[in-house]
Write a protein that binds this DNA or RNA. Sequence first.
RNA 1: GCGGACGUGGUGGAACCGGUAGACACACAAGACUUAAAAUCUUGAGGGGGCAACCCCGUGCGGGUUCGAGUCCCGCCGUCCGCACCA
Length: 884
Amino acid sequence: MPPESKPNDQNTAPERYNAPAREPYWQAKWDEAQIFKAGNNSSDPKCYVLEMFPYPSGRIHMGHVRNYAMGDVFARYKRAKGFNVLHPMGWDAFGMPAENAAIERNSHPGTWTYANIATMKTQLKSMGLSLDWSREIATCGPDYYRHQQKLFLDLLNKGLAYRKSSKVNWDPVDHTVLANEQVIDGRGWRSGALVESRELTQWFFKISQYSDELLDALGTLDKWPEKVRLMQANWIGRSEGMLLTWALDKKTAPNGHATLDIYTTRPDTLFGASFLAVAADHPLAKAAAEKNPKLATFCDECRRMGTSVADLESAEKQGFDTGIRAVHPLDKDWLLPVYVANFVLMDYGTGAIFACPSGDQRDLDFARKYKLPVVPVVLPAGADAAAFSIKDKAADGNGTMINSRFLDGMTTTDAFEAVAKKLEADTLGGRPVGVRKVNFRLRDWGISRQRYWGCPIPIIHCETCGAVPVPAKDLPVKLPDDATFDKPGNPLDRHPTWKNCACPSCGKPARRETDTMDTFVDSSWYYARFTDPQSETPIDPKAASYWLPVDQYIGGIEHAILHLLYSRFFFRAITDSGHGTGLNMREPFSALFTQGMVTHETYKSAAGKWLLPSEVSFKGEGDTRTALETATGKPAAIGSIEKMSKSKKNLVDPDDIIAHWGADCARWFMLSDSPPERDVIWTEAGVQGAGRFVQRVWRLIDDAASKSAAPGSTMPADFGDDALALRRAAHKALDGVARNIEGLRFNVAVAQIYELTNEFSAALPKSSQGLDWAIREAAGFLVKMIAPMMPHLAEECWSRLGYNTLAANQAWPQADPALLVDDRVTIAVQVNGKRRDELTIARDAKNGDIEAAALRLEGVVRAMEGRPAKKVIIVPQRIINIVA
RNA sequence: GCGGACGUGGUGGAACCGGUAGACACACAAGACUUAAAAUCUUGAGGGGGCAACCCCGUGCGGGUUCGAGUCCCGCCGUCCGCACCA
């Protein structure tokens, strides 16, 4: 920050706009007038603009500023366009950081959370966002989570929530389940303890029931980024294949295991099979291990193997022959060995595979290691049949069948059909040997968390009646305030009395569920709650059907799968279980925009410590720029540009920027230059540039106010050329800015505002009756165009122009179509595709006249070198190309 | 490994449907104002050649389609992102 400028002080030069002093004034004006309060009963078309609500982690960061600045531009613009806009804000307030803070301070998570909410709310207000604060919600409030508990019960009732035993990452020191992301090199990220795999009974939401629909409906989300839809499609992971039942050889199979089911997407390669493999946890493996201690040891080793990326890459394919033999479904005399293999996953398909080494790289690696047959069955297109063999690379594509008996010569697609038809017709023990089956990668959503600071799962466990839902009249199941946070583990579980209760069904002493819900449940329906946050039911059908779906949702790409997929599922699940009756929609967010991150240079002191940008001063410019640690005067290293983060200390505090430059400057900087979906680099120079523009607009409007025609003057009958040019520029900018805001291309909208500003500034020194009127008009347009982006400055300018209304209440002006097109156009003239001259001609000139004029041009004549024109291509108002 | 996106001046980037590449901004340079600086204003600028008019080259690289390609097609190279023992 340049020490010489002190915008916090009283204006020394009266023409300087003191943003930090004026912004709170206008914020108070908006508050008084309650202009951003959205009514649920309006005949105006609605527009629901939502940015992903923040986790109250302490203070807002620049990422928030960017996200909310974008949403606010869109919301304010839509208001100006006459929409009834809903633009709410709330807090994703449950979560582990609050509980960790409580452990560190030996206080309550709520204390920390609500203090953070208060701080961040003040900060957001200082940004001048057009938010309807009357709808504020915090997910940690019983007013919110009691409805979530009702939603849970209704899902349970519909069979969409259920309990099952599953394997989880268990941290033995912190006594809690950890998500896969929280396990680093096999150790808990907080405790450092070796994570154990534990079988626990957990609550699940049946997202898998919606696999097909969630995948298919992605096609309808045409206002979502292609990237996000693709990520979700991959995550859902649909594959088409067959479920095959293999008979096991009676002499070798364990008792009770007459058959083995496997899933395959390549039944066409069955004649290339050389072995079967099951996961270490597969029942067949367990049965075989009972009689074989060495196999039991191998299975234990497999289970211990981590599932991290590093583990998987370094892990070699390993297997153990169970001694069991299986009968090939297409040849009863063909027996294949059954292995236990470390690369087979229990929770995909059936946990068992048939391996075709010539057609799958893993199978090939495995076959080479254990000296199993490798029979090529697919000849890739273009390969020479005589010379074809499999070495160290499997042929996993399509082609022509070889070495495959009755399939030989068929394409892989035809072979799939042929095998499928045959195996569907064949029977084993009265059932078809093969059934076509669509398989999904998507698993059910485990929502149980062994934590305090989350929504309690409203269930009571009774020894007689089992898991009994808490009756709706007893909701909410409130978190006890007097939990203790002095040691790790679940404070609900060790609370002396909270979990004791009576069974709602039989009345006998029973125990409350002490797990709470994953916080992603909270954020899966908050957008619906915003439509009527006071409603006695979780969702008010009338309000929801008026406002939903969200018309524009904006947030980070990091939620491409998690939050956005959960919400798409949960919205379907709750509507299917009776909420929002009459809501005729399946998707909660009709348009999605994912914005880029805010990045900044990093700095390191001579001692190797990260330094805050505010702890560093600079010498020189460009390539010769060097940094010094201000406190010590020692040189500091300028490092790479990274996402702003606490760990690298490359943070700029929004409060400092707003206090020094004003919110408008910060907002303008965020919207300028970088396309919204890409990362933006926060630079001091960029902020200064934005700050200069704030002052420039103020100066120009101030100047225009004193020179231009009075507000409301009648339009002159005639405009001079200068006035007409300014009017054209203003109307074109209006039109362009509107379209670019609608398309969320804020950087381009900003550039168009700059262009108009340049024209405006050039016109100001001149004067005529027409020009004075045009200046008044252009000044009004300029103010209305910057209003969504720099709302405070817009108010200040609007007031300076002599109006006593609020700029925020002004309608977006209609651009005059007649002024959007010029009478005369300048078009380039090419000879053989190279630009040689340009031609300014009447917009509606006839092609013959254009051609004649073009051929007369000096540059054209020169380039033609006396040759005749073979052909003249005229694209009206675009280009002329003469082929010589 | 699979899937995807991107590659344009010193920098961020713009260019609707294939039609004047480099809008706009930052940084830079020169000038004006000033005792001086800041601020502000004016002007310049893709690279090369030329006094100039003007000419040649130019959107990662190599081909192609077209009157015309940053944009479309094929093949490379590079960067980034997502998923990943998914049968």
